[in-house]
């Protein structure tokens, strides 16, 4: 079916409302979020997950916009999760990724959700993992995660995505920047966006030299792009599509392990509250942390 024909098909708003509300529940946390993710994890899932990360203003959203039509030629539908930062002062957020994205002609085939980080460190929101699992269970064959603008180490996306595209710009840094740990170790492909700016050749050479030192068979490729004109985007997508097609299902396993860990942490916290309410709070007062944990262990033994 052509994009144009499908864009004309009516959007099933009731189905989308259910999905949108489930994501809100996951974002709100608590037992309902855990139950939703557990149900999602019980459903067979096969999505490809593409992470897109890089510093603020590098052009991540504009590249998502340019890549979407190409992605829709290969995948029947695409879900996009775009993370932006929450204020540490007020808790508010300005979620502006939609402004850059021309998702408009895709109707039922594109689901787009903006997500605030809500105090979570690492470039994504606490709810991002569970939301990926939910979208995966909801049969979206390609899930694109756009992180908030990151610095050198906020790379949690690596644990959630099958493949990660790092977006940088000409003039981004010299040879020392290119060889620092973090950002340049973790990408599967690199875009030097805004390639019409001065310094492209030097940035490309320095980045490629750094990537060639990685202990991998095939170093990641570097693609000059101008997202707003579409320049270089086809070449970039060709590489990403191949990387996704070749990707093992490791990240899906990792997401499941992280989900189990999150459930265990929630259970421990709830047990700890019980311990405190059953006299543990008083018993551990003025005790060293070591003694307090011994008392907690005793409490566990008595309970089992």
């Amino acid at each position: 079916m052509s994009n144009a024909a499908d864009a004309a098909a009516p959007v099933d708003f009731e189905q989308r409302k259910a999905l949108a509300r489930a994501i809100t529940s996951i974002e709100s946390g608590g037992n309902q979020a855990l139950t939703l993710e557990e149900a999602a994890l019980a459903t067979p899932a096969n999505a490809h997950v593409l992470g897109i990360t890089g510093p603020p203003g590098a052009g991540k959203s504009s590249l998502v916009s340019a890549l979407l039509p190409l992605a829709l030629q290969r995948y029947s539908s695409v879900a996009v999760l775009a993370v932006d930062p929450s204020s540490a002062v007020t808790g508010g957020a300005l979620l502006g990724d939609r402004v850059r994205i021309d998702y408009r002609h895709f109707g039922n085939r594109v689901f787009f959700r903006s997500m605030a980080s809500r105090g979570h460190q690492g470039g994504i929101a606490a709810a991002t993992r569970a939301t990926i699992n939910l979208l995966d269970a909801d049969q979206w064959p390609l899930i694109i995660i756009e992180t908030l603008g990151i610095g050198q180490v906020e790379l949690d996306i690596v644990d959630l995505a099958d493949r990660v595209l790092v977006v940088l710009n000409p003039g981004w840094g010299d040879g020392f920047q290119a060889n620092k740990a973090g950002l340049t170790e973790q990408g599967d492909a690199f875009a030097l966006n805004k390639a019409d700016r001065p310094g492209l050749e030097q940035a490309k050479i320095l980045l490629e030299q750094s990537l060639q030192c990685l202990p991998v068979e095939r170093p990641p490729s570097v693609f000059p792009t101008i997202a707003t004109d579409g320049d270089g985007v086809t070449e970039l997508w060709h590489d990403l599509a191949q990387l996704l097609a070749d990707s093992p299902t490791e990240s899906s396993k990792k997401r499941r392990i992280l989900a189990a860990r999150e459930a265990a942490r929630a259970q421990l916290l709830s047990d700890f509250e019980t311990f405190l309410n059953c006299g543990g709070g008083e018993a551990t007062q003025e005790k060293s942390p070591g003694t307090a944990t011994d008392l907690l262990a005793q409490f566990y033994q008595q309970r089992s």
């Binding site: 929450s86 007020t90 808790g91 508010g92 957020a93 300005l94 979620l95 502006g96 939609r98």
Partner: peptide
């Protein structure tokens, strides 16, 4: 307006010019 709402603690999703 979006900035004022952000500073008041809202999550503001900007979509821009839209049909």
């Amino acid at each position: 307006v979006a900035r004022a709402l952000r500073d008041a603690g809202f999550e503001v999703i900007m979509i821009g010019m839209a049909t």
